[in-house]
């Protein structure tokens, strides 16, 4: 049997987990990854390595995950269905597991026209739920074709959920499908609108999904009102209340004040998320602002990070 990841052990023992997120560099140098790892090491339990997010070409998430391990950080490898067919994805999953990557996050992926290669052909051979199903079949020792996997990878499989997109009912149905397909943890889109998130969590609890998978709420610290407005207007499926924008707008003249308000907002959101039943952790998404992670984690009294109780579960 493959040993479980730190991240999985912490979730299983009921600790409130903190994840980070970093984007791989747009070049063939691993130094930026190692540099960012320093911001996350000892402050978060695992870090997502994005897979060509917003369809912009970057270093592969698999190799970046390997470098993140060099940097002392436990990776969650993201995998999108946009760039690979079912053969490539299964072989990548096997390779990732062999390299020591234990957590994966299965996504459908942003459409090509959002990125820097809008002329590309999208693959979309599988969708995210079918990818979760595929990974879970690999864990059970079967390829999609039904053939036997010689040594199953034993991955900890995750999926994403967006509580803020329409139609609301469909979001719950889709979450249920992801969990039924084999998702063991769920990361949500960044929460700004807590009322909507609470409504979503209530529906999740009514269906008992919080008992079947670990739900991690996304939190995105922002350092300028421009970033917030850009997100509201250009990222479909995000929901940003006017009061957040107003709060950031008041201090837009001063960079330092904007940062202070941005941090305070993230900390407030995390503190309120911790009180919602069924939320097992938070997923910090400091896009291009990884250096702020230690401060936020510290301000939320989430330090020191817990260590999984030794051994027993790993067998």
């Amino acid at each position: 049997m493959v040993s479980k990841s730190n991240f999985e052990l912490l979730l299983n023992q009921g600790s409130f987990v903190v994840c980070g997120e970093m984007s791989p560099p747009q070049g063939a140098d691993k130094a930026p990854i190692l540099k960012k790892c320093a911001y996350f090491k000892d402050y978060v339990d695992a870090v997502n390595l994005t897979d060509n997010q917003t369809a912009i070409v970057r270093m592969s998430s698999m190799m970046s995950s390997v470098f993140a391990m060099e940097g002392g950080v436990e990776p969650i490898m993201q995998m999108t269905c946009r760039d690979r067919n079912r053969l490539a994805m299964q072989s990548d999953l096997l390779g990732a597991a062999a390299a020591g990557i234990k957590n994966i996050l299965c996504l459908t992926g942003d459409y090509m026209t959002f990125g820097n290669h809008p002329d590309a052909k999208g693959c979309f051979d599988l969708d995210s739920i079918q990818l979760i199903h595929t990974a879970s079949e690999l864990n059970k020792g079967r390829f999609l074709s039904g053939d036997e996997v010689k040594s199953p990878p034993g991955l900890f499989i995750g999926g994403a959920a967006n509580p803020f997109a329409e139609p609301f009912e469909m979001r719950i149905i889709r979450l249920g499908k992801k969990i039924a397909a084999g998702a063991q943890f769920i990361q949500t889109q960044p929460v700004f609108d807590l009322l909507r998130f609470e409504k979503w969590m209530a529906a999740v609890r009514d269906n008992g999904y919080d008992q079947q998978a670990h739900i991690l709420a996304g939190v995105m610290p922002v350092r300028s009102v421009k970033a917030l407005i850009n997100m509201r207007d250009n990222v479909p499926g995000s929901m940003i209340p006017d009061e957040c924008i107003k709060r950031m707008d008041v201090v837009k003249e001063s960079k330092e004040d904007s940062i202070e308000v941005g941090v305070a907002m993230a900390v407030e959101i995390i503190k309120r998320l911790r009180e919602i039943p069924g939320v097992k952790g938070v997923h910090l998404m400091p896009v291009m602002w990884e250096s702020i992670t230690p401060r936020i984690v510290e301000l939320c009294d989430l330090l020191p990070r817990p260590v999984p109780a030794s051994g027993d579960d790993a067998l």
Binding site: F124, D127, A161, N162, R174, K177, Q189, M239
Partner: peptide, 15 residues
Amino acid sequence: CPKQIRNGPCGGTRP
């Protein structure tokens, strides 16, 4: 669907 998803909407449906 541009992404040909057979299992429900992606996270990008607009309000």
